[in-house]
Write a protein that binds this DNA or RNA. Structure first.
Lengths: 222, 222
DNA sequence: TCGCATTAGATAGTGTCGCTATCTAAATTA
DNA sequence: TAATTTAGATAGCGACACTATCTAATGCGA
């Protein structure tokens, strides 16, 4: 299904100048050139473009991080045991401006994981993120108790099991042709794109629990 | 404990020009003026400044969102039943660039909540966020099954219960003097600042589950 | 008391990010 | 053939979060 650049823009809702910009930035592969001023695009471009927008808008990644994720996806290294590591490396510390002192070892995070009995590999970017988050929260004066951390960890573990269960074992996944399948691809996408779902559900659950506990005839909200 | 602006900057690790910028932007209250070119700052300023940095850096909020959160905190409306609503309103859609069509009702989100039997109040910003996230994830080709959503929801519910349990019932909370206590304050801060902890734990849990399942004595061959 | 550093307050400049606009020459399509 | 579209290049723009500079007043130290 061949299309021109203007159709590609139209069918994804992305403006034409932006499509050109993504091409320049290497976020979208060039079309098949048919002449000096003409190129053909197809369904893979549509899917790739939608993926870029999803990672940027929903996942909140910078275009630099999007590019890194796409590279990991394209590498197609579908060795399941490495998928998580590669996924998290691709995401890097893109998630937030958490950096603390990258030199200092994330002691509190490591201590917590040991208490939980979780496997750790020291270079995990998430360790640094966890450490920075714990530090910040302490400084603000609302340090989570160990039991709160345990609750969070238990919930995180259950989510992670759901995530891992979802990994497609057949190499080429079910998703679109513009998006490499396999374990790495799935893990990257699920990690980033299910995140906002989880966060939204947490907030909705807060409202639900709240309503239940403080049930009153009059409605909250405004 | 009185201090000058340069000490305030020093003791928080924020550059002096940035402190002045925050003062201009209304993110930090002015010091007590002692003369035309002199003002005193104290511990509340230190705490407020740390809070601003935590919300911005760890929570990933824009300074505009930070200002909104601070206003909610300062309003000091500690009516427990409204805390969640106000907290989420203050956070608004600051979390990500999720906006979809704000006119269209978030049908899928509402349907999901009904299936879960969760209380909904229609204006919840999180509903729109959930809807946008679900849409995006579908378009990319990795739609979550109902059972995945149920798992996520169960985990979210358990986290929310932990969150609500943590609300200090005594009005003025235990945290610093620069940070209003009470239910609204706690909920706002816990919602934003525990988020990165949860996300980091999820990733670490993924690595843990992964390691357990694919445990192998030697490196897997090719 | 002299003199230098610090300060408040105002205004202007900087660098990054994610586009958006314009231009040219070639090719397509009507 | 004339109008439109395109690739490719270059330049501009608006938001954001600072950062720098200036002025006049003040503190504080010797």
């Amino acid at each position: 299904m061949s299309m021109r650049i203007s159709e590609l823009a139209q069918s994804t809702g992305v403006s034409l100048p932006t499509v050109k910009y993504y091409l320049r930035e290497g976020l979208l592969p060039a079309g098949r050139a048919t002449a000096a001023t003409q190129a053909d695009y197809d369904q893979t471009h549509v899917e790739r473009l939608r993926l870029v927008r999803a990672l940027a808008d929903v996942g909140g990644l910078s275009l630099t991080s999007v590019r890194r994720v796409l590279q990991t996806l394209d590498a197609g290294d579908d060795q399941v045991p490495y998928a998580i590591g590669e996924a998290h490396t691709a995401l890097g510390d893109a998630q937030s401006g958490l950096h603390a002192d990258p030199a200092a070892p994330p002691l509190r995070a490591i201590t917590l994981l040991q208490r939980l009995g979780w496997y750790t590999y020291d270079s995990a970017p998430a360790l640094g993120q966890l450490e920075a988050a714990l530090d910040a929260v302490d400084q603000v004066g609302i340090p989570p108790s160990d039991s709160v951390l345990d609750s969070y960890a238990a919930a995180a573990l259950s989510i992670a099991e759901t995530d891992i269960d979802g990994i497609p074992l057949d190499q080429e996944g079910a998703h679109g042709a513009g998006i490499p399948g396999g374990a790495v691809g799935f893990v990257v996408l699920a990690t980033v794109l299910y995140e906002p779902i989880l966060l939204a559900l947490r907030r909705l659950a807060q409202a639900h629990v709240f309503a239940q506990r403080y049930e009153e005839p009059s409605r909250p909200g405004h």
